[in-house]
Amino acid sequence: MKTLLYSVPFLLIASSAIAGSCPQWTVGDLVIDAAWSKATIGDARPGIIYFTVTNTGAEADNLTGIATPAAEMPMLHETVVTDGIASMPHAPAIPVPANGSVSLAPGGYHGMLMGLTAALAKGDTFPATLTFERAGTVEIEVAVEALTAREPTCRQDAS
């Protein structure tokens, strides 16, 4: 079941990654792009999800939830550094500005995957469902990069 879940989307994504551009998903006025994760050492450590949301509309939205079969407890977090100390509070609503974009990226907003159902390996993909306050829900495919990756290997379209 798990193999099927991971391998089928992988083939689809792999072809588009080789082609260059990152796959995109659209819901309402929002475009989700550059969805990636990092390989984990085993399944005990939390995994991570990063992506970019671009809002082509004139009304702001909020990203309020994330779900995925890859983890028992996925949650939106933000890395915050206060007085030099890093913490990762829950981010109940990540603002997506009108005619603008927000990036979930290393050192800032991210989806944290607690209770991974399996270790994530480079080259895997897994589905994730994002919930926006206005635009609703959209399912995306997240590509797993190396643990040492700084960005997705696909080319992110200018947004």
Partner: peptide
């Protein structure tokens, strides 16, 4: 700490750079 999902790998990658 090695269970750190965002800050530590990011610092390590900054250092690598």
């Amino acid at each position: 700490f090695t269970w750190c999902p965002d800050v530590c790998p990011t610092t390590l990658m900054n250092i690598a750079g």
